[in-house]
């Protein structure tokens, strides 16, 4: 989990012009997520973690913070390996 947290954090920092994002910070509330970012985030987790984001995952809460994204990834990975 901690490895995915740092990968997601690095991706967000890169996407948000070097801003340091705290693991529990709500990125939408902080005004970071723009329209293009949403699909970039999907592309990132799919490409980096080898998972498939689908309609069931389309809940804004899954993408709200680094920790939430990491939980989504962990959940999807456990499904893949199960």
């Amino acid at each position: 989990m901690s490895e995915s947290i740092s990968a997601i954090a690095a991706f967000m920092t890169r996407s948000f012009d070097g801003a340091e994002i705290a693991p529990d910070q709500d990125i939408f509330e902080a005004g970071y997520g723009n329209s293009m970012f949403s699909m970039q985030l999907v592309a990132f987790v799919e490409s980096h973690f080898g998972i498939e984001v689908d309609a069931d995952d389309l809940d804004i809460d899954n993408f709200r913070s680094i920790n939430r994204v990491a939980s989504l990834v962990a959940r999807k990975q456990s499904l893949v390996s199960a």
Partner: peptide, 18 residues
């Protein structure tokens, strides 16, 4: 309804556009 409410432009349409 395809996907989830609120995700039509940002995700569904973008997938088609890509």
């Amino acid at each position: 309804l395809l996907g989830r409410p609120g995700f039509g432009a940002s995700h569904v349409a973008v997938t088609g556009l890509e």
